[in-house]
Design a protein around this nucleic acid. Structure first.
Lengths: 182, 182
DNA sequence: GGTGTATTTATAAAGGTATTTAAAAAGCTT
DNA sequence: AAGCTTTTTAAATACCTTTATAAATACACC
Protein backbone atom coordinates (compact mmCIF):
# COMPACT_ATOMS: atom_id res chain seq x y z
CA UNK A 1 0.00 0.00 0.00
CA UNK A 2 1.47 3.24 -1.14
CA UNK A 3 2.29 5.99 1.31
CA UNK A 4 1.39 9.35 -0.13
CA UNK A 5 1.12 12.96 0.86
CA UNK A 6 -1.34 15.44 -0.62
CA UNK A 7 0.63 18.53 -1.59
CA UNK A 8 -2.00 20.64 -3.28
CA UNK A 9 -5.75 20.55 -3.85
CA UNK A 10 -7.40 22.72 -6.49
CA UNK A 11 -11.16 23.08 -6.17
CA UNK A 12 -13.87 25.28 -7.61
CA UNK A 13 -17.28 26.45 -6.50
CA UNK A 14 -19.55 29.46 -6.98
CA UNK A 15 -20.80 32.23 -4.70
CA UNK A 16 -23.98 32.23 -6.76
CA UNK A 17 -23.94 35.88 -7.82
CA UNK A 18 -21.94 38.41 -9.77
CA UNK A 19 -19.07 39.99 -7.86
CA UNK A 20 -17.74 43.54 -8.04
CA UNK A 21 -14.08 42.63 -8.03
CA UNK A 22 -12.95 46.25 -7.86
CA UNK A 23 -14.94 46.72 -4.65
CA UNK A 24 -13.69 43.43 -3.23
CA UNK A 25 -10.09 44.38 -4.05
CA UNK A 26 -10.49 47.46 -1.85
CA UNK A 27 -12.33 45.57 0.88
CA UNK A 28 -10.03 42.58 1.22
CA UNK A 29 -6.58 43.14 2.65
CA UNK A 30 -3.88 41.90 0.31
CA UNK A 31 -6.23 41.18 -2.59
CA UNK A 32 -4.57 41.46 -6.01
CA UNK A 33 -6.65 42.37 -9.01
CA UNK A 34 -5.14 43.23 -12.39
CA UNK A 35 -7.92 42.65 -14.92
CA UNK A 36 -5.73 43.53 -17.89
CA UNK A 37 -3.36 40.78 -16.81
CA UNK A 38 -5.83 38.17 -15.56
CA UNK A 39 -9.61 38.40 -15.05
CA UNK A 40 -9.54 36.82 -11.60
CA UNK A 41 -8.87 38.49 -8.26
CA UNK A 42 -6.28 36.72 -6.10
CA UNK A 43 -6.86 36.52 -2.36
CA UNK A 44 -4.47 34.65 -0.08
CA UNK A 45 -5.14 33.18 3.37
CA UNK A 46 -2.35 32.38 5.81
CA UNK A 47 -4.36 29.55 7.38
CA UNK A 48 -5.13 27.35 5.61
CA UNK A 49 -2.29 28.58 3.39
CA UNK A 50 -4.17 28.98 0.15
CA UNK A 51 -4.69 31.30 -2.80
CA UNK A 52 -8.28 31.81 -3.90
CA UNK A 53 -9.23 33.26 -7.26
CA UNK A 54 -12.51 35.18 -7.41
CA UNK A 55 -14.20 35.92 -10.71
CA UNK A 56 -16.78 38.49 -11.81
CA UNK A 57 -19.21 35.64 -12.43
CA UNK A 58 -19.06 34.58 -8.79
CA UNK A 59 -17.07 31.47 -9.64
CA UNK A 60 -14.27 30.67 -7.21
CA UNK A 61 -11.09 28.63 -7.52
CA UNK A 62 -9.15 27.66 -4.42
CA UNK A 63 -5.55 26.42 -4.73
CA UNK A 64 -2.82 25.34 -2.36
CA UNK A 65 -4.88 23.45 0.24
CA UNK A 66 -3.29 20.34 1.75
CA UNK A 67 -6.57 18.49 2.27
CA UNK A 68 -10.19 18.47 1.15
CA UNK A 69 -11.20 19.82 4.54
CA UNK A 70 -8.80 22.71 4.19
CA UNK A 71 -10.48 23.65 0.92
CA UNK A 72 -13.83 23.93 2.71
CA UNK A 73 -12.31 25.92 5.56
CA UNK A 74 -10.53 28.26 3.16
CA UNK A 75 -13.56 28.96 0.99
CA UNK A 76 -15.66 29.52 4.11
CA UNK A 77 -13.14 32.04 5.42
CA UNK A 78 -12.95 33.85 2.11
CA UNK A 79 -16.73 34.11 1.98
CA UNK A 80 -16.82 35.39 5.55
CA UNK A 81 -14.12 37.99 4.81
CA UNK A 82 -16.13 39.25 1.85
CA UNK A 83 -19.29 39.51 3.93
CA UNK A 84 -17.42 41.20 6.77
CA UNK A 85 -16.49 43.84 4.23
CA UNK A 86 -20.18 44.51 3.72
CA UNK A 87 -20.51 42.63 0.46
CA UNK A 88 -23.24 40.08 1.04
CA UNK A 89 -23.10 36.78 -0.74
CA UNK A 90 -24.81 33.42 -0.53
CA UNK A 91 -22.37 30.66 0.25
CA UNK A 92 -22.96 27.69 -1.98
CA UNK A 93 -21.24 24.70 -0.37
CA UNK A 94 -21.09 22.79 -3.63
CA UNK A 95 -17.32 22.44 -3.84
CA UNK A 96 -15.86 20.44 -6.70
CA UNK A 97 -12.31 19.11 -6.44
CA UNK A 98 -10.60 19.66 -9.78
CA UNK A 99 -7.11 18.38 -9.11
CA UNK A 100 -5.11 16.73 -6.35
CA UNK A 101 -1.33 16.82 -6.48
CA UNK A 102 0.42 14.31 -4.23
CA UNK A 103 3.93 13.01 -3.63
CA UNK A 104 4.98 9.45 -2.91
CA UNK A 105 8.19 7.46 -2.66
CA UNK A 106 9.17 4.03 -3.98
CA UNK A 107 12.04 4.19 -1.47
CA UNK A 108 14.60 2.89 -3.92
CA UNK A 109 16.61 4.30 -6.79
CA UNK A 110 15.08 3.76 -10.20
CA UNK A 111 17.02 3.73 -13.48
CA UNK A 112 14.81 5.96 -15.59
CA UNK A 113 16.66 5.19 -18.81
CA UNK A 114 15.87 1.51 -18.36
CA UNK A 115 12.27 2.28 -17.47
CA UNK A 116 11.88 4.43 -20.59
CA UNK A 117 13.36 1.76 -22.85
CA UNK A 118 11.49 -1.15 -21.24
CA UNK A 119 8.07 0.48 -21.05
CA UNK A 120 8.43 2.17 -24.40
CA UNK A 121 7.70 5.63 -25.69
CA UNK A 122 3.95 4.94 -25.92
CA UNK A 123 3.54 4.88 -22.15
CA UNK A 124 6.21 7.21 -20.90
CA UNK A 125 8.11 10.34 -21.87
CA UNK A 126 11.64 10.87 -20.64
CA UNK A 127 13.85 13.72 -21.77
CA UNK A 128 16.38 14.19 -18.96
CA UNK A 129 17.98 17.29 -20.46
CA UNK A 130 14.58 18.93 -20.58
CA UNK A 131 13.25 17.70 -17.24
CA UNK A 132 14.74 15.17 -14.79
CA UNK A 133 11.47 13.31 -14.23
CA UNK A 134 9.94 10.59 -16.36
CA UNK A 135 6.35 11.37 -17.34
CA UNK A 136 4.02 8.42 -16.86
CA UNK A 137 0.44 8.82 -18.08
CA UNK A 138 -2.22 6.44 -16.78
CA UNK A 139 -5.70 5.99 -18.25
CA UNK A 140 -7.19 4.50 -15.09
CA UNK A 141 -7.03 6.43 -12.88
CA UNK A 142 -6.63 9.25 -15.37
CA UNK A 143 -3.60 10.88 -13.79
CA UNK A 144 -0.06 11.78 -14.70
CA UNK A 145 2.80 10.61 -12.54
CA UNK A 146 6.28 12.09 -12.59
CA UNK A 147 8.84 9.48 -11.62
CA UNK A 148 12.33 10.50 -10.52
CA UNK A 149 15.61 8.63 -10.32
CA UNK A 150 15.44 8.81 -6.52
CA UNK A 151 12.22 6.79 -6.56
CA UNK A 152 10.23 9.85 -5.49
CA UNK A 153 7.05 10.49 -7.46
CA UNK A 154 4.55 13.25 -8.02
CA UNK A 155 1.00 12.39 -9.01
CA UNK A 156 -1.25 15.04 -10.48
CA UNK A 157 -4.66 15.08 -12.10
CA UNK A 158 -6.34 12.99 -9.39
CA UNK A 159 -9.90 13.88 -8.38
CA UNK A 160 -9.99 11.87 -5.14
CA UNK A 161 -7.20 10.56 -2.86
CA UNK A 162 -7.75 6.89 -3.81
CA UNK A 163 -6.79 7.80 -7.39
CA UNK A 164 -3.32 8.63 -6.12
CA UNK A 165 -2.97 5.37 -4.20
CA UNK A 166 -4.16 3.31 -7.15
CA UNK A 167 -1.82 5.10 -9.53
CA UNK A 168 1.22 4.64 -7.32
CA UNK A 169 0.41 0.98 -6.68
CA UNK A 170 -0.18 0.37 -10.37
CA UNK A 171 3.15 1.88 -11.36
CA UNK A 172 5.01 0.06 -8.59
CA UNK A 173 3.44 -3.23 -9.74
CA UNK A 174 4.36 -2.57 -13.35
CA UNK A 175 7.95 -1.71 -12.47
CA UNK A 176 8.22 -4.85 -10.34
CA UNK A 177 6.72 -7.03 -13.06
CA UNK A 178 9.26 -5.66 -15.52
CA UNK A 179 12.11 -6.27 -13.07
CA UNK A 180 12.79 -2.55 -12.85
CA UNK A 181 12.48 -2.46 -9.06
CA UNK A 182 12.48 -4.88 -6.15
CA UNK B 1 43.86 25.43 12.49
CA UNK B 2 41.54 25.66 9.55
CA UNK B 3 40.67 22.61 7.56
CA UNK B 4 40.51 23.46 3.90
CA UNK B 5 40.18 21.79 0.55
CA UNK B 6 41.70 23.10 -2.65
CA UNK B 7 38.95 23.14 -5.27
CA UNK B 8 40.68 24.73 -8.21
CA UNK B 9 44.17 25.84 -9.15
CA UNK B 10 44.76 28.19 -12.06
CA UNK B 11 48.33 28.35 -13.33
CA UNK B 12 50.15 29.69 -16.33
CA UNK B 13 53.37 28.88 -18.12
CA UNK B 14 54.79 29.04 -21.62
CA UNK B 15 55.84 26.43 -24.13
CA UNK B 16 58.48 28.84 -25.30
CA UNK B 17 57.45 29.11 -28.94
CA UNK B 18 54.63 30.18 -31.21
CA UNK B 19 51.91 27.58 -31.67
CA UNK B 20 49.86 26.81 -34.77
CA UNK B 21 46.52 26.48 -32.97
CA UNK B 22 44.72 25.39 -36.13
CA UNK B 23 47.13 22.48 -36.54
CA UNK B 24 46.89 21.63 -32.83
CA UNK B 25 43.11 21.68 -32.98
CA UNK B 26 43.24 18.97 -35.66
CA UNK B 27 45.92 16.98 -33.84
CA UNK B 28 44.41 16.96 -30.36
CA UNK B 29 41.26 14.98 -29.81
CA UNK B 30 38.49 17.11 -28.38
CA UNK B 31 40.34 20.40 -28.74
CA UNK B 32 38.06 23.40 -29.18
CA UNK B 33 39.31 26.43 -31.09
CA UNK B 34 37.03 29.29 -32.12
CA UNK B 35 39.34 32.27 -32.66
CA UNK B 36 36.47 34.64 -33.46
CA UNK B 37 35.00 33.79 -30.06
CA UNK B 38 38.15 33.51 -27.96
CA UNK B 39 41.81 33.53 -29.02
CA UNK B 40 42.76 30.51 -26.94
CA UNK B 41 42.39 26.83 -27.79
CA UNK B 42 40.71 24.73 -25.09
CA UNK B 43 42.02 21.25 -24.42
CA UNK B 44 40.58 19.09 -21.64
CA UNK B 45 42.18 16.16 -19.83
CA UNK B 46 40.15 13.56 -17.97
CA UNK B 47 43.00 12.91 -15.53
CA UNK B 48 43.87 15.20 -13.92
CA UNK B 49 40.48 16.68 -14.76
CA UNK B 50 41.58 20.01 -16.15
CA UNK B 51 41.00 22.44 -18.98
CA UNK B 52 44.10 23.92 -20.54
CA UNK B 53 44.07 27.00 -22.72
CA UNK B 54 46.75 27.22 -25.40
CA UNK B 55 47.58 30.50 -27.06
CA UNK B 56 49.30 31.38 -30.34
CA UNK B 57 52.12 32.96 -28.33
CA UNK B 58 52.91 29.64 -26.68
CA UNK B 59 51.49 30.84 -23.38
CA UNK B 60 49.46 28.25 -21.50
CA UNK B 61 46.79 28.52 -18.80
CA UNK B 62 45.76 25.42 -16.89
CA UNK B 63 42.53 25.45 -14.85
CA UNK B 64 40.61 22.98 -12.75
CA UNK B 65 43.47 21.16 -11.04
CA UNK B 66 42.94 20.12 -7.43
CA UNK B 67 46.59 20.47 -6.40
CA UNK B 68 49.81 22.09 -7.48
CA UNK B 69 51.15 18.67 -8.46
CA UNK B 70 48.14 18.09 -10.68
CA UNK B 71 48.91 21.29 -12.53
CA UNK B 72 52.40 19.98 -13.35
CA UNK B 73 51.06 16.59 -14.39
CA UNK B 74 48.38 18.17 -16.55
CA UNK B 75 50.71 20.57 -18.35
CA UNK B 76 53.17 17.73 -18.88
CA UNK B 77 50.46 15.58 -20.42
CA UNK B 78 49.26 18.36 -22.66
CA UNK B 79 52.81 18.96 -23.88
CA UNK B 80 53.26 15.26 -24.50
CA UNK B 81 50.00 15.05 -26.45
CA UNK B 82 51.07 17.95 -28.63
CA UNK B 83 54.44 16.31 -29.29
CA UNK B 84 52.81 12.95 -29.99
CA UNK B 85 50.89 14.71 -32.71
CA UNK B 86 54.21 15.60 -34.34
CA UNK B 87 54.29 19.20 -33.19
CA UNK B 88 57.55 19.60 -31.36
CA UNK B 89 57.77 21.95 -28.46
CA UNK B 90 60.21 22.74 -25.70
CA UNK B 91 58.67 22.25 -22.30
CA UNK B 92 59.45 25.13 -20.04
CA UNK B 93 58.80 23.97 -16.46
CA UNK B 94 58.39 27.49 -15.15
CA UNK B 95 54.82 27.15 -13.88
CA UNK B 96 53.32 30.10 -12.07
CA UNK B 97 50.25 29.62 -9.87
CA UNK B 98 47.86 32.49 -10.50
CA UNK B 99 44.94 31.58 -8.28
CA UNK B 100 43.94 28.96 -5.76
CA UNK B 101 40.27 28.49 -4.92
CA UNK B 102 39.58 26.58 -1.72
CA UNK B 103 36.62 25.73 0.47
CA UNK B 104 36.52 25.60 4.26
CA UNK B 105 33.93 25.30 6.99
CA UNK B 106 33.49 27.12 10.29
CA UNK B 107 31.18 24.24 11.28
CA UNK B 108 28.54 26.50 12.74
CA UNK B 109 25.78 28.69 11.43
CA UNK B 110 26.70 32.34 11.00
CA UNK B 111 24.23 35.23 10.98
CA UNK B 112 25.47 37.15 7.97
CA UNK B 113 23.26 40.15 8.66
CA UNK B 114 24.89 40.56 12.05
CA UNK B 115 28.34 40.08 10.54
CA UNK B 116 27.66 42.72 7.90
CA UNK B 117 26.38 45.23 10.45
CA UNK B 118 29.11 44.53 13.01
CA UNK B 119 32.07 44.53 10.64
CA UNK B 120 30.71 47.37 8.55
CA UNK B 121 30.41 48.04 4.86
CA UNK B 122 34.10 48.94 4.55
CA UNK B 123 35.22 45.39 5.15
CA UNK B 124 32.41 43.30 3.77
CA UNK B 125 29.73 43.32 1.11
CA UNK B 126 26.47 41.48 1.67
CA UNK B 127 23.54 41.66 -0.71
CA UNK B 128 21.53 38.50 -0.04
CA UNK B 129 19.05 39.07 -2.83
CA UNK B 130 21.90 39.33 -5.27
CA UNK B 131 24.08 36.56 -3.88
CA UNK B 132 23.68 34.51 -0.67
CA UNK B 133 27.31 34.82 0.34
CA UNK B 134 28.98 37.66 2.23
CA UNK B 135 32.05 38.99 0.43
CA UNK B 136 35.01 39.45 2.73
CA UNK B 137 38.12 41.10 1.27
CA UNK B 138 41.44 40.72 3.08
CA UNK B 139 44.58 42.71 2.40
CA UNK B 140 46.93 40.19 3.96
CA UNK B 141 46.77 37.64 2.52
CA UNK B 142 45.30 39.42 -0.48
CA UNK B 143 42.34 37.13 -1.02
CA UNK B 144 38.58 37.29 -1.14
CA UNK B 145 36.52 35.01 1.06
CA UNK B 146 32.87 34.26 0.50
CA UNK B 147 31.17 33.46 3.78
CA UNK B 148 27.80 31.69 3.85
CA UNK B 149 25.13 31.39 6.48
CA UNK B 150 25.97 27.70 6.88
CA UNK B 151 29.48 28.61 8.00
CA UNK B 152 30.92 27.25 4.75
CA UNK B 153 33.45 29.48 3.05
CA UNK B 154 35.14 29.86 -0.30
CA UNK B 155 38.55 31.51 -0.52
CA UNK B 156 39.83 32.72 -3.85
CA UNK B 157 42.77 34.77 -5.02
CA UNK B 158 45.34 32.83 -3.00
CA UNK B 159 48.75 32.20 -4.56
CA UNK B 160 49.89 29.47 -2.16
CA UNK B 161 47.95 27.12 0.14
CA UNK B 162 49.11 28.85 3.36
CA UNK B 163 47.31 32.00 2.15
CA UNK B 164 44.04 30.09 2.44
CA UNK B 165 44.77 28.83 5.96
CA UNK B 166 45.80 32.27 7.13
CA UNK B 167 42.73 33.89 5.63
CA UNK B 168 40.33 31.40 7.20
CA UNK B 169 42.05 31.63 10.59
CA UNK B 170 42.03 35.41 10.43
CA UNK B 171 38.33 35.58 9.66
CA UNK B 172 37.46 33.00 12.31
CA UNK B 173 39.46 34.99 14.86
CA UNK B 174 37.76 38.24 13.88
CA UNK B 175 34.31 36.66 14.09
CA UNK B 176 35.14 35.21 17.51
CA UNK B 177 36.53 38.52 18.77
CA UNK B 178 33.31 40.22 17.69
CA UNK B 179 31.21 37.57 19.37
CA UNK B 180 29.79 36.50 16.04
CA UNK B 181 30.78 32.86 16.47
CA UNK B 182 31.85 30.53 19.27
C1' DG C 1 47.46 54.98 -29.00
C1' DG C 2 45.97 54.09 -24.35
C1' DT C 3 42.57 52.65 -20.94
C1' DG C 4 38.56 50.29 -20.32
C1' DT C 5 34.96 46.60 -21.42
C1' DA C 6 34.03 41.97 -23.26
C1' DT C 7 35.20 37.15 -24.73
C1' DT C 8 36.96 31.70 -22.40
C1' DT C 9 38.30 28.08 -18.65
C1' DA C 10 37.71 25.99 -13.76
C1' DT C 11 35.87 25.88 -8.94
C1' DA C 12 33.28 25.97 -4.33
C1' DA C 13 29.47 28.05 -1.65
C1' DA C 14 23.67 28.87 -1.34
C1' DG C 15 20.15 31.37 -2.97
C1' DG C 16 17.20 32.32 -7.10
C1' DT C 17 15.25 31.08 -11.63
C1' DA C 18 13.71 27.79 -15.04
C1' DT C 19 12.15 23.16 -16.62
C1' DT C 20 7.47 19.26 -16.20
C1' DT C 21 2.47 17.75 -14.80
C1' DA C 22 -2.76 18.69 -13.78
C1' DA C 23 -6.91 21.56 -12.97
C1' DA C 24 -10.55 25.41 -12.74
C1' DA C 25 -11.87 30.26 -13.62
C1' DA C 26 -12.70 34.58 -17.72
C1' DG C 27 -10.84 37.48 -20.87
C1' DC C 28 -7.70 38.39 -24.58
C1' DT C 29 -5.46 37.11 -29.05
C1' DT C 30 -4.94 34.08 -33.07
C1' DA D 1 -11.99 26.86 -31.12
C1' DA D 2 -7.48 26.85 -29.43
C1' DG D 3 -4.00 29.08 -27.06
C1' DC D 4 -2.29 32.33 -23.81
C1' DT D 5 -2.85 34.93 -19.18
C1' DT D 6 -2.97 33.47 -13.14
C1' DT D 7 -2.74 30.47 -8.87
C1' DT D 8 -0.83 26.22 -6.32
C1' DT D 9 2.33 22.11 -5.45
C1' DA D 10 5.83 18.32 -5.23
C1' DA D 11 9.88 16.18 -7.53
C1' DA D 12 15.29 16.86 -9.53
C1' DT D 13 17.88 18.77 -12.82
C1' DA D 14 20.32 22.94 -15.17
C1' DC D 15 21.59 27.39 -15.00
C1' DC D 16 22.06 32.08 -13.10
C1' DT D 17 24.09 35.03 -9.30
C1' DT D 18 29.44 36.09 -6.61
C1' DT D 19 34.84 35.83 -6.19
C1' DA D 20 39.79 35.36 -8.22
C1' DT D 21 43.12 34.52 -12.03
C1' DA D 22 46.06 34.11 -16.41
C1' DA D 23 46.00 34.19 -21.52
C1' DA D 24 44.94 37.23 -26.46
C1' DT D 25 41.67 39.07 -29.14
C1' DA D 26 37.80 42.55 -30.42
C1' DC D 27 35.27 46.23 -29.13
C1' DA D 28 34.26 51.14 -27.33
C1' DC D 29 35.79 55.57 -25.70
C1' DC D 30 38.81 59.67 -25.25
Amino acid sequence: MAKMKIENVVASTSLGQELDLTAIELALDGAEYNPQQFPGLVYRLKDPKTATLLFRSGKVVCTGAKSLDDVKVAIGKVAKDIEKAGIFITIEPNIEVQNIVASSDLEQEINLNTVAITLGLEKVEYEPEQFPGLVYRLDDPKVVVLLFGSGKMVCTGAKVPPDVVRAVDKIAAELRAAGLMN
